[in-house]
């Protein structure tokens, strides 16, 4: 290496460089990751199908999901009503297709809100030492109540079965899990040498959170978010099934099953079809989450 010329007015570290500065490269890592992780691929495809069904529900379903027709109630599957009809003569196929909307909105909504709020709480706990004890004890208290019980209690408090209320109730119940995970990730990352190096480089506290802490904690939290999405779908179905969630005017897989419960032994189709939809959707989300986890942390994949 040649050294810098000795005489300089300003403090220049090296001789000037020719303009060989290339543009940042484009990434095609997304497709490669998908190909390498078949579970992610399968989960993603199934979930995409459910999403298409939810978006195009009015086109796909053959009839109005709320239209009652007592003359043809509790029918077995037929050409007119593919999945049969329930006790009020409503088309179960139409209701199941519309039910996908509720499940997806609740699942994604809860995953999104719980992650955002949980991350903010977790970052605060991990960074503000005096607040840590207080915040985490509150989170522990919330976690000591089973999520489904807490959600039922919150639904009772809110006195009204709307999709927004269901999302809110389940979100509150799921927040502690995200907060706990974020806090532990922050605590382990903030002790790393590169954070110390960033302090030495004069980077501000917010800059350190944004540049160093968040990007290195976001991976496990994204994986956690998919699991929260799956569990929120189940919780919503349970709430609607026991009557604490959505009224039957908004078809949800949970309340369709609730209506078929009494007739389960004679007319299993009423329960069967929404149950299959729910299982497949939850399975799809979990597969996607597993694939994501494997892509994010290959060491974990081998262990499981």
């Amino acid at each position: 290496m040649t050294s810098a010329p000795p005489e300089q007015e300003s403090y220049v570290v090296a001789r000037a460089m020719p303009a060989i500065i290339s543009a940042p490269p484009k990434r095609n890592a997304m497709m490669r990751t998908l190909r390498r992780h078949p579970t992610m691929w399968l989960g993603g495809t199934l979930l995409a199908l459910v999403a298409i069904m939810a978006i195009f529900a009015p086109i796909i379903s053959t009839s109005d999901p709320s239209a009652m027709n007592p003359a043809v109630r509790v029918q077995p599957p037929s050409a007119e009503a593919w999945f049969g009809t329930d006790m009020l003569g409503r088309d179960i196929f139409a209701r199941s297709v519309y039910g996908a909307r509720v499940s997806l909105i609740v699942g994604i909504g809860v995953a999104l809100f719980a992650t955002i709020v949980g991350m903010i709480i977790g970052l605060t706990a991990g960074f503000v030492r005096w607040a840590d004890g207080i915040i985490m004890r509150i989170m522990d208290g919330m976690m000591s109540i089973p999520a489904i019980l807490l959600a039922i209690a919150l639904m009772t408090l809110m006195r009204g079965g709307s999709v927004m209320n269901v999302i809110l109730a389940i979100t509150i119940a799921e927040i502690p899990r995200v907060a706990r995970l974020t806090r532990s990730a922050v605590l382990s990352v903030r002790e790393l040498t590169y954070v110390e190096a960033a302090v030495a480089c004069g980077t501000s506290k917010l800059g350190i959170i944004r540049l160093h802490i968040l990007p290195n904690t976001v991976a496990p939290i994204t994986v956690q978010a998919t699991y929260i999405c799956a569990s929120a779908m189940i919780t919503e179905a349970i709430l609607s099934f026991i009557g604490a969630g959505l009224p039957t005017s908004i078809p949800s897989w949970g309340n369709i099953m609730a209506e078929g419960r009494a007739l389960w032994q004679v007319k299993p189709n009423i329960v069967f079809f929404p149950a299959i939809f729910l299982s497949v959707t939850v399975l799809a989300v979990n597969l996607l989450g597993d694939g994501l986890r494997d892509a994010v942390d290959p060491r974990l994949a081998k262990r499981v």
Binding site: P24, T193, A197, A198, C201, N216
Partner: peptide
């Protein structure tokens, strides 16, 4: 620092790493 493996943020490229003091100051 001693350990060059832990003192570079694995999610930043070389440009971002080296220019960090330039940006923060």
């Amino acid at each position: 620092f001693q350990d060059p493996f832990s003192s570079l943020n694995p999610r930043m490229n070389v440009e971002a790493l080296i220019s960090e003091p330039l940006r923060s100051h």
